[in-house]
């Protein structure tokens, strides 16, 4: 799940200030779950942009998927011709996928936060940094690169004094958590050693091509 939140209203208003006729398009996927870009949020934004003419509102299930997007855009093709700009309530990926598919300015109403777990309504947790070199098989299914504020992949950092994280003293050090989980699951507690991430592999923008993402070399 891509976690997102609505931008401050003033920022949204400033971004659409130069346009009169707008379309507002929400995301029926992640942003709807996050309550940042669902039908209700689209309606709310429409109300707050009272001085604008909102030509139409629309919901696309997954605007980040070009196949779905192409199908949905055919349904609104004509109405899009009547707007000056499109305000999109979707994550950065959704906004950019949409923007690359239409010849209208696309503005975002959301800030994209992180890929994360939905704990409950409006409560989310980051746990994957999409590094492309997953350690989960060695760390009891807990990612130290994401859950440690320093991203230390080799044991607790030099500054940890007890079981708590020195950056967030309210939290347990992820390496202590990993240790405990390994013990409770009777997994081997031999501490592995991991090389630093290979950033050459992470040169942006990343993409995979072919029938499926091929295994890392």
């Amino acid at each position: 799940m891509i976690i997102s939140r609505q931008k401050p209203l003033d920022e949204i208003k400033a971004s659409v200030a130069g346009y009169h006729k707008l379309a507002i398009i929400g995301c029926g996927g992640c942003a709807a779950v996050c309550q940042s870009g669902g039908t209700k949020q689209v309606e709310e934004i429409q109300k707050t942009l009272g001085d604008k003419k909102v030509v139409f509102t629309f919901q696309i299930d997954e605007p980040c998927d070009q196949r779905i997007l192409a199908r949905e855009l055919r349904r609104i093709e004509k109405r899009l011709q009547n707007v000056d700009a499109v305000l999109v309530l979707a994550c950065g990926t959704g906004v950019q996928t949409l923007a690359s598919s239409i010849d209208k300015p696309c503005l975002t109403g959301l800030d994209t936060l992180f890929p994360g777990t939905v704990i409950h309504s409006t409560s989310y947790a980051e746990n994957c940094d999409a590094c492309g070199e997953c350690l989960l098989n060695f760390t009891a299914g807990i990612c130290p690169r994401t859950n440690c504020p320093k991203g230390i992949a080799n044991g607790p950092c030099s500054e940890k004094l007890d079981e708590k994280c020195p950056v967030d003293p309210e939290s347990e050090c992820v390496w202590v958590t990993i240790d405990k989980r390994k013990e409770s699951l009777t997994l081997s507690n031999d501490i592995q050693e991991f090389p630093p991430l290979n950033w050459e592999r992470r040169t942006r923008p990343r993409k995979t091509e072919g029938k499926k993402a091929s295994p890392r070399e």
Binding site: G155, P156, K160, C173, W175, V176, I178
Partner: peptide
């Protein structure tokens, strides 16, 4: 020189490394 902050199993494991 290296720094070891704590005393948990994980800290000692790191010290060993």
């Amino acid at each position: 020189g290296v720094c070891i902050g704590g005393l948990t199993h994980a800290d000692i494991g790191r010290a060993r490394k």
